[in-house]
């Protein structure tokens, strides 16, 4: 009877096989060609097959080799959520709010991911970095973002 001895590796192997299948599926319309005249689909398809083979070997290994005992980390869902969402929020808000308010909200929002954060520090840091980034990026490096976007009353689009 086969038993999964290393659950983490088992999942890893399955993930690799799924990744290979995804690439094959989304590349199904790409012309593969032959080894002489390789089409655009040749290289990705071969790689996907190799990845799936490696995935299968990882699964095989997970059935044979015992996992070493490791103390599991307690997942910090709040931190994952905030840190991953922060860039998304940045991307969504940037064009409307402009750099300064976006930066401020990003910093204050993401700082709460730490269990040592306190509001006073976060707000001060947010203000400081908002000013710094405006000076550095819009003034010095002249990126095409304004400090305040059209959503900000009175200040927006002035700079």
């Amino acid at each position: 009877m086969l038993k999964i001895r290393n659950g983490r590796d088992f999942i890893g192997g399955v993930t690799m096989i799924c990744a290979g299948l995804l690439f094959i599926w989304f590349g199904r319309n790409l012309e593969v060609g032959n080894s002489f005249q390789m089409g655009p689909g040749y290289f990705p398809t071969v790689l996907s097959l190799v990845l799936m083979a490696i995935g299968a070997l990882i699964i095989l290994q997970s059935l044979v080799v015992e996992a070493e005992r490791v103390e599991p980390q307690r997942p910090n869902w709040k931190a994952y959520f905030l840190v991953i969402l922060a860039p998304v929020g940045f991307g969504v808000l940037l064009s409307g709010l402009g750099l300064a308010p976006t930066m401020f909200f990003l910093i204050v929002g993401v700082a709460t991911a730490s269990r040592y954060a306190n509001w006073r520090h976060s707000i001060l840091l947010g203000l400081f970095l908002a000013v710094c980034s405006v000076l550095l990026f819009t003034r010095l490096l002249s990126l095409p973002i304004s400090a305040f976007g059209p959503w900000v009353p009175f200040l927006g689009d002035l700079s």
Binding site: P87, G91, L99, I107, L141, L143
Partner: peptide
């Protein structure tokens, strides 16, 4: 560290944006 990491995230976001001046790279 709780003051350092928000700054890193902030600079990563602006850095990603400034590659092509598009938010797509941030995503």
């Amino acid at each position: 560290y709780h003051l350092l990491f928000p700054a890193i995230i902030g600079f990563c976001c602006i850095g990603a944006y400034s590659i092509n001046n598009s938010v797509f790279d941030v995503f």
